[in-house]
């Protein structure tokens, strides 16, 4: 099998490390080889996008050019923010020959394209369809999950093929395959405040609290997401929200890959479940191995 290109993104080593850990754990289980793009750089995230449109395309362009030179055709980008930058760049380059020419000049690198960029939800759905579904040994029966898509998995060119921007459901099959249940709720696509965690904490606290409140009101045991930015706003910032006298909230926030990993019987530390700010280990008791 040809290896799948892998773009970890910067949060992979730090604030979002559970995502990378659980992605690798699932890939190992499914027998899929992930080949990290050698010498990849940061996609520029919101910062480049806000200050320099050229840079916002040039940084992902270098990544695409490297990947292409290294013989990769498809790139898994688990971080939803990086995914948005990379896929956006692929789309823009395909649309404008002028832009492509300028980027060749700016970077001194050649990218012909188009590469296919896939996000973490597409990755999980693909593994499930490819046989991982049969390896889910410890279904999370009765676990109520609020699937949270945020902005970067539901809107614009980030939308997952065939999904509905207002009522997305692309995570539902994976949650169901894990034996858990998707609860209907209202904030699946509302913004958490995105990249403002440090620079505009008040907004993140307000917006993320609404999301947590609605998930709780809907009776969810946990929130499942595919974006490290959303994850950090909902998980780490839950402490800030509580420290400001709101709530208190105690809603575990999992990556989709962690949820599926649990259902597959993978160890919690292998999935990074112990790195969360809000205790997620307690969901383990739900993951009972299926009686033989």
């Amino acid at each position: 099998m040809t290896p799948l290109g892998y773009y970890p993104g910067c949060s992979d080593h730090g604030s979002g490390r559970e995502l990378g850990m659980s992605v690798h754990a699932l890939a190992r289980l499914a027998g899929v080889e992930l080949k990290e793009i050698e010498d990849w750089n940061c996609c520029g995230a919101t910062a480049a996008h806000n200050l320099s449109h050229d840079l916002a395309v040039a940084l992902p362009y270098r990544v695409l050019a490297l990947a292409e030179a290294q013989g990769l055709a498809e790139i898994l980008t688990p971080c939803a923010a990086c995914f948005s930058r990379l896929k956006g760049t692929v789309v823009r380059l395909a649309r404008s020959a002028d832009l492509a020419a300028r980027m060749r000049q700016v970077t001194g690198l050649e990218y012909r394209g188009p590469l296919r960029i896939i996000n973490v939800v597409e990755f999980v759905n693909r593994l499930l369809a490819g046989g991982l579904k049969d390896k889910l040994a410890a279904p999370l029966a009765g676990l109520k999950v609020a699937t949270y898509y945020g902005c970067l998995l539901s809107r614009g060119e980030n939308i997952i093929e065939g999904d509905d921007a207002e009522n997305p459901a692309s995570m539902t099959p994976a949650v169901k395959a894990a034996g858990a249940q998707v609860v209907p709720w209202n904030f699946a696509t509302e913004c958490c405040g995105g990249g403002f965690s440090m620079s505009f904490t008040d907004a993140v606290v307000d917006l993320s609290e609404q999301i947590l409140a609605d998930a709780r009101a809907a009776g969810a045991d946990c929130i499942v997401t595919g974006c490290p930015m959303c994850h950090s706003n909902l998980d780490m910032r839950q402490l800030t929200i509580n420290s400001r006298g709101r709530g208190p909230y105690d809603v575990p926030v999992l990556y989709l890959t962690e949820l599926v990993g649990l259902a597959a019987g993978l160890g919690p530390k292998e999935l990074g479940l112990d790195c969360h700010f809000v205790d997620a280990m307690r969901l383990l008791s739900r993951a009972e191995p299926r009686p033989a």
């Binding site: 940061c42 520029g44 910062a47 200050l51 620079s199």
Partner: peptide, 13 residues
């Protein structure tokens, strides 16, 4: 603050 964050981010990158 917002600008400082973006600039710091790009500086690091």
């Amino acid at each position: 603050k917002v600008l400082a964050f973006h600039k710091a981010f790009l500086k690091v990158v």
